[in-house]
Computed example of a mutant assay.
Amino acid sequence: MTVVQACVRGGPEGRGGSPTAVLDDGPFGEGERRRVPGAAGASHAVFVTREGERDGHPAFSLRFFTSEGELPSCGHGTIAALGLLAARAGTDTYEVSLRVGGRTFAGRAVRKGPYAEVGFVHGPVELREPAGTESALVLPALGLAPDALGPGLRVASVGRPRLLVPVASRSALAALAPDMERLRAACDRLGLLGCYVHSAPTPSGRLAARMFAPSIGVPEDIANANGTACLAAHLAGRGVDRVSVDMGDSLGSPATIGATVEAGPSGPVVRLGGGVLVRRPGHRP
């Protein structure tokens, strides 16, 4: 098992990032898989299976677990797995075919020693207006009044729905202190994965976010790439085609996730990316 720092901030000399356990899959039971994140000091674990070759590239499938169970996808877990696979290959540029659930997609990594810049095309994002019940239950659990919100409250899904919650500023974001028991009860009742709360983007697309997901055993995520993909798809409808999202500062582990959006034949195409530190395969810090 390797604990990878996913979505580090600051390039090759960066710091922080989300510790993510990455390991080769095997005959593990459900309980064993759920225990791995805690044993590794991580919020998530990624289980990797080699599938030969696909489209002329090495092919792998990925599964993701938290202490509460399996997730249909995990963006920062995919970034972590890409970084480790590139480190194992030992090449400066690494391209791979990945399968998550029923979707296959290409991943790419460019290495500089233990650091790699990785990226992949995210799956489709579904967006809708929140129901009144969703706002009424979730916002008080976050400690937010409706008049404290910025424009653009949305429910977004990339397999499981989450609430995108805009606040006015980074300082308002930093001041949040959700009632986690109340938030978990609300999300469980509504079938939400959690809440991705974000500041307004600057003209260059820079912003900050915090992801609260107690329903999956992660009160606050250091880096949440799936939520960033959801936000990027939403902001594309407002003319913002590139974002750089700072996360993890409230947890003392700064992380940054990038996303760009391009027009595709069946809707917006989101490309996610981030920096990964793999000090050595098999390493547990």
Rank of each mutant, 00 (worst) to 15 (best):
T49L: 07
T49E: 11
T49W: 14
R50G: 06
R50K: 04
E51Y: 02
E51Q: 08
E53S: 07
R54S: 11
R54I: 04
D55C: 03
A59D: 01
F60S: 05
L62C: 12
F64I: 07
T66M: 10
T66C: 11
E68M: 09
E68N: 07
L71S: 12
P72F: 04
S73L: 08
C74T: 09
G77Q: 01
G77F: 11
L82N: 07
L84D: 10
L85I: 09
L85V: 04
L85M: 10
A86M: 10
A87R: 12
R88M: 13
R88H: 15
G90L: 06
T91M: 06
D92I: 05
D92A: 07
T93S: 07
V96Y: 06
V96N: 13
V96T: 12
V100G: 08
G101N: 06
T104Y: 14
F105S: 05
A106R: 06
A106D: 14
R108C: 08
A109G: 15
R111T: 12
G113P: 14
E117N: 10
G119Q: 13
F120T: 12
V121L: 04
H122C: 12
G123Q: 11
P124A: 11
E126H: 13
L127S: 02
R128M: 02
P130I: 00
G132P: 01
G132R: 11
G132Y: 03
G132D: 09
T133R: 15
S135C: 12
S135Y: 01
A136D: 12
A136L: 11
V138Y: 15
P140C: 06
P140G: 03
P140E: 05
A141L: 06
L142C: 05
A145S: 15
P146N: 10
A148T: 03
L149W: 03
L149F: 08
L149I: 08
G150D: 09
G150H: 00
G150T: 03
G152M: 10
G152N: 04
G152F: 05
G152R: 07
L153N: 01
R154D: 02
R154Q: 15
R154I: 00
R154G: 00
R154C: 01
V155E: 07
S157M: 00
P161W: 00
L163C: 09
L163D: 05
L163H: 07
V165Y: 11
V165W: 09
P166N: 14
P166G: 08
V167Q: 10
